[in-house]
Design a protein around this nucleic acid. Structure first.
Lengths: 148, 148
DNA sequence: AATGAAATATACTCCCT
DNA sequence: AGGGAGTATATTTCATT
């Protein structure tokens, strides 16, 4: 799908605030609200928009720690890990990656004990490396419009 | 703030679909729409909800590659990097972390050349390691309700 | 804190361009 | 692909419990 200027403007606004009304978006981009609704629906149907998420403060949810954990899976243990990982509710994001490690995850924990238990579980699947997140420098930056 | 059962249910629904109407949420959790609106507003004001994001398919946006890049900053180069990183529009997320590396970023690129240019820019700030993202195993999992 | 009701605003459907 | 009209639904405000 080709994204024209108007669709990029709509996507920018939706990325900043997914709960903006079609009417509000329409006012800012110069379209009627049915026109905005139609464009958004098309982008949803064609997979340009994957969904709408709410960014919840994990500390308010009772999670004191966040970590980036990589896994270098043991021989034959990658598939078992991939089958199991969705059971680990603490995992917010998980990617397969190239390089020395096979997996990288963003995970939240109530406390150090919780983190420790999680790493103990992982050790049956591979070698792990844990980096505690100190602060967010950039969070959910909108995808930039394709430039020159 | 203490999150009761109803607030967790509202957060679950909002995390799955941030554009759900208050009325729809109210029907599912058994509240009137003004009651839902009031609870959501309170969670926004108290910082439980940070915002509402739209998950845009970066390939549809013209980005063929996504990478996880770590930076181990040279002496005195961390601060200059932190000041500059928001200029790099390709960076979707960036965290300060503990461990051998100081910074971890999720970055999108049009093509290999674009990636190469980005790494060339980074090299003035520190040692980099690049992992190409092969696939998403878990994406934006909702924060689990605090358990036992 | 929640409800119900009235006023306003928005969304949805259909037809026209 | 978008505008406009008409209808249905949602949001907002406020009084009440």
């Amino acid at each position: 799908m080709r994204l024209d200027k108007l669709n990029w403007e709509i996507l920018d606004l939706l990325q900043k605030n997914a709960r903006a009304s079609n009417a509000e978006i329409g006012r800012k981009v110069g379209l009627s609200s049915p026109a905005v609704a139609e464009r958004i629906k098309k982008m949803e149907d064609l997979g340009v928009i994957n969904g709408y998420r709410t960014d919840v403060n994990y500390t308010a949810g009772g999670y004191q720690l966040r970590a980036i954990i990589t896994v270098r899976a043991f021989m034959g243990k990658l598939k078992p890990f991939l089958d199991k990982v969705s059971d680990f509710k603490e995992v917010l994001n998980c990617y397969r990656i190239t390089g020395n490690e096979n997996i990288i995850m963003e995970v939240v924990f109530h406390d150090q004990k919780h983190l420790e238990g999680f790493i103990d579980t992982l050790i049956t699947y591979g070698e792990t490396r844990t980096h505690i997140v100190l602060s967010d420098v950039i969070s959910n930056n909108p995808i930039p419009r394709k430039m020159a």
